[in-house]
Amino acid sequence: MSIQVHLDRLLAERGMTLTELADRVGVTVVNLSILKNGRARAIRFSTLTALCEALDCQPGDLLSHRRG
């Protein structure tokens, strides 16, 4: 997959667990885990907004595109 999700790194930098993030953004741990492991096929703008607010970051910090 060419879109990389950097949820692991952002969580580690902020000392936050996946469960805490799930509580803050209102998304299930299962869905966040799908996103974290790169198995998500799409992400809603509302989810992205909630994640950026909870992690105090920009969409570009969370996602990046890798060629090939």
Binding site: V27, N31, L32, I34, L35, R39, A40, R41, A42, I43, R44, T47
Partner: peptide, 8 residues
């Protein structure tokens, strides 16, 4: 359906 289920 797969797209929908893979949407977070």
């Amino acid at each position: 359906r797969a797209d929908l289920e893979g949407t977070v």
